[in-house]
Write a protein that binds this DNA or RNA. Sequence first.
DNA 1: CGCTAGATTTCGCCA
DNA 2: TGGCGAAGTCTAGCG
Lengths: 231, 231
Amino acid sequence: MRLVIAKCSVDYAGRLSAHLPLATRLLMVKSDGSLLVHSDGGSYKPLNWMSPPCTLAIGEPDSDQADAGVTETWKVTHAKTGDMLIVSIYEVLHDSAHELGIDPGLQKDGVEAHLQKLLAEQIELLGDGHTLVRREYMTAIGPVDILARDENGASVAVELKRRGDIDGVEQLTRYLELMNRDPHLAPVSGVFAAQEIKPQARTLAEDRGIRCLVLDYDAMRGLDNADGRLF
Amino acid sequence: MRLVIAKCSVDYAGRLSAHLPLATRLLMVKSDGSLLVHSDGGSYKPLNWMSPPCTLAIGEPDSDQADAGVTETWKVTHAKTGDMLIVSIYEVLHDSAHELGIDPGLQKDGVEAHLQKLLAEQIELLGDGHTLVRREYMTAIGPVDILARDENGASVAVELKRRGDIDGVEQLTRYLELMNRDPHLAPVSGVFAAQEIKPQARTLAEDRGIRCLVLDYDAMRGLDNADGRLF
DNA sequence: CGCTAGATTTCGCCA
DNA sequence: TGGCGAAGTCTAGCG
């Protein structure tokens, strides 16, 4: 990665035309040739950029540009789309290159995983007297998100989704069918829990005797995090 | 703006939880306190970030972290939402600060607006003998991009898009349905004009008797702008 | 100030 | 690989 702080103007011609007047900016050249033009504010979005795959060609200014004070021009082209980004550099204030290597990438703790953890901790959200048996309860056709017991000790299988769609109801139905054949577990009732449950999914679930539970993620997180669990 | 290249790991807790394993990355601290964590690839989107308004606090690692090799910790908090970004720095490879000043900002030449202007000027692109009635012709359900007349004086409604998708065809269909109920206008034919028309959209449009017109933006701009404003 | 629609959106999933 | 939907979306216009 190469970092250049320079007084420059920028022109983009591609899906639209855009122009950045002369100012001091950060030019970030990534190892794939892509270029980001950042100002010292705003959001994470650059003022202008070129996405990979693209190629950077550094050239001399023509006489007109040289007269105007341009010392070098960067031309970034996207081979496929023909998009073009032209940076006219007037003064370089900083220039450094760095070897970063390949990034292992972001690990997102998906909302579903987090919801599962939170619901396991707040199992009473299923109803008074409910107790957790275990998360990821294994069955022959895959893990049930949460297995619990209700106030009478009867088994409750919970399928968790961020968005409750018909697929999730079908999935839970299969688990319930299987688990209800196991005399150690039966009778097993089902709870379909999600931040948002689609009307079709709710209709299908209730038709099959599966209870629907809409979860308030923020509230659950707030409860869990009131004492500052993470840091 | 402060630029730091460092071996670091990053944790984010806010609307979601995310973790970046130890690797060398660019940390960009903008003058509004916001932080961007960039890798040497990908798109313009940072691996992780904190949007302004937020505050950066640099602190010492605790003993556990120090044992693990952490030399300093950055804690960026968003006062309003409570979002938190924690950067654990293991080694600083580069550190520089730069005064950039306020950026004058991007000047965009919008494409759809520009296309509309260009097509209005080059209305004969619709076909020989076509004449412009007006741009943004108002109807009860919104403005039609361009209303024209064909060589026989019959009304032509034009829907303009940068990329022609099914939505645009639906939109034009609604306009046509409405306008064809107006005896002053009927019969109104439709033209779906875009720089690029998706096959599905073309099929739908032609099935409804709507003509498709692919526009060559560069050629249109070239005609309009023969003196070459940009390059 | 909240809502809405567009974005040079980008990103990820799934068919 | 293309289409579709979500995003820690961001951003600008408008009521």
